[in-house]
């Protein structure tokens, strides 16, 4: 299910820990890198690969918001909603995004460009409220204007074909 290079990477990960279960988190990254999300099929494959139960894999995948159990859009907008961000208005930010993109959190726009997710603390409480696009740098001290600008920029980027 994985490319030969990624299989090799997992082999290498398995040598790194005394118990194969410990390699689960990085192995999931490797798998998600290839597909953008981790299907149940892929989870079962990794379970057999690591010698653990599929249930143990799914527990981890569903625990962390960084692993996607469904395909995500080209731009995954992950809005932090943990306490400091919430106090600073993350509910408004994510609500604004939902309205603007006409989707609910966890959903992807019809054109496949955007997914909005509610995630736990991203460690940037001093600049709350904030969000992260994919695995790139943070967009901080968010306002409605900044969100508009961000979405416009990402749309332009996608149209320009260099996203």
């Amino acid at each position: 299910m994985l490319t030969p290079e990624r299989e090799k990477k997992i082999d290498e990960l398995l040598t790194r820990y005394p118990s194969s279960r410990s390699a689960l988190l990085p192995a999931l990254w490797v798998a998600q890198e290839q597909y953008g999300w981790i299907s149940l099929e892929l989870q079962k494959y990794l379970a057999i690969r690591l010698g653990i139960t599929p249930e143990q894999v799914r527990e981890v995948v569903t625990f962390y918001s960084m692993y996607n159990e469904r395909p995500v859009g080209k731009y995954h907008l992950q809005v932090c909603c943990t306490t400091p961000c919430m106090l600073m208005g993350s509910d408004d930010v994510i609500g604004y995004l939902e309205k603007k993109l006409d989707i609910r959190r966890g959903q992807t726009t019809a054109d496949g460009l955007f997914t909005v997710s509610q995630v736990e603390c991203l460690g940037s409480c001093g600049t709350a409220p904030m969000l992260q696009v994919n695995r790139e740098k943070y967009d901080e001290n968010l306002t409605y204007e900044k969100v508009d600008a961000l979405v416009d920029r990402l749309r332009a980027q996608a149209e320009g074909g260099n996203g």
């Binding site: 139960t53 249930e55 569903t62």
Partner: peptide
């Protein structure tokens, strides 16, 4: 058997 899981957070 280990067939039950704690899902989500």
């Amino acid at each position: 058997v280990g067939a039950l899981a704690k899902l989500n957070r």
